[in-house]
Design a binder for these strands. Structure first.
Lengths: 116, 116
DNA sequence: GTAAGGGTTCACGTCGGCGAGAAGGTCAAG
DNA sequence: CTTGACCTTCTCGCCGACGTGAACCCTTAC
């Protein structure tokens, strides 16, 4: 299939798909006319990519661990992916820190708003 | 006083003070040699600026409402600042939305990490 | 053959407070 | 006079997943 159809099926923009290719996450074939040619399995691959990105992994990290993270019903073992577990923990910590920052900011905002 | 001293007293970088001036939040005088000349009251002004910024206001908004937000013990009425109250509410809402996003992200991250 | 609706590759914009380096001027002290 | 601390303006960089034209090529239907 071509990029538009995959975009529809996967629920992302064509621009995003080109971006993933740019980052090496998706490597479609090419037709004679230069069009990108995607396989059916790429729908699942994109789902995996978006799942990881929405969890806070950047494209470089996604690239390193693409294929060994559980994304659906058939759980792939994390053991197959040395380092992923630690990476997830690190991301979780940064996320927690960011949440704490925002909560502090929220407190300061309330402080400002509590004028007479 | 000059920029270095104000930076120390206010606990910000000299770069930040130049940035505030760039945004029109701080307008120091100039010495014959071209040095910025700050008044003693600017220490409090900077405190007010950083308080508002740390609460999530951007420099443009700080500029609009600088001087009428409560920052210390002597509460200035919000009534003197038409619009500030609404602005704070809007910022609070965006902040809450961002917090919700991050909590969702945290959930998705846990989802990823819960592989077998 | 031609119009329509894809597709392609750049390449800059976003969001913004401030870090950081370059190149050079000002000034008090030894 | 000279060092050296501190100051000046200028300008790019950051953090990154995309949005958004611009200018042009491919394919298919009619």
């Amino acid at each position: 299939m071509r990029i538009g159809e995959l975009a529809r099926l996967a629920g992302v923009s064509a621009r995003a798909l080109r971006h993933y290719e740019d980052r090496g996450l998706l490597v479609p074939g090419r037709t004679g006319g230069g069009y990108r040619e995607y396989a059916d399995t790429d729908v699942a691959r994109v789902a995996q990519i978006t799942a990881m990105i929405s969890a806070g992994l950047n494209t470089a990290t996604v690239g390193r661990y693409l294929g060994c993270a559980r994304t659906g019903e058939h759980g792939t073992s994390l053991e197959l992916c040395p380092g992923l577990s630690a990476e997830l923990v690190a991301i979780g910590e940064r996320l927690e820190a960011r949440l704490a920052e925002l909560r502090d900011q929220q407190a300061r905002l309330r402080e400002l708003a509590s004028a007479d």
